[in-house]
């Protein structure tokens, strides 16, 4: 059975790109979230194997969402999606419980490597 993924980003563009990369690698995209709050709700509801999480989103940012998700589910596998210059935020997200991160621009091979590490 393929792994299930929840993709969280406020830009359709980014969600499409990430979903494409993962779907092509055989993952099943079970949900998408546009805000941190939605990410937390959908995580509870869908219990996906993997979450990709943008850092800055309206209505609860990604880091807070990670904190929120890990509070109930410390085992959650969350992959942060970051842009350059967000070192401090990524460090914070990791301290909050994110398992790994990828940096834009996404290279599919690097995204998949990170996903494998998180799932491994």
């Amino acid at each position: 059975m393929s792994h299930t993924v929840l993709v969280c980003d406020d830009a359709i563009f980014m969600r499409t790109m990430i979903s494409d990369i993962l779907a092509q690698a055989g993952f099943e995209i079970v949900g998408e979230a546009e805000t941190g709050r939605e990410a937390v709700e959908k995580y509870r509801q869908l219990k996906p194997d993997l979450v990709t999480m943008d850092i800055v989103m309206p209505d609860m940012g990604g880091i807070e969402a990670v904190r929120e998700i890990c509070k109930d589910s410390p085992e959650a596998r969350i992959l942060m999606c970051s842009a350059m210059g967000q070192q401090a935020l990524v460090v914070e997200a990791i301290q909050a419980g994110a398992k790994d991160f990828v940096v834009k621009p996404f290279q599919p091979s690097r995204v998949l490597e990170a996903v494998q590490r998180v799932l491994g």
């Binding site: 406020d10 830009a11 563009f13 790109m17």
Partner: peptide, 10 residues
């Protein structure tokens, strides 16, 4: 921020 992410991804 959102714009930056998209531009970087492109």
């Amino acid at each position: 921020h959102t714009f930056k992410g998209m531009a970087a991804a492109m």
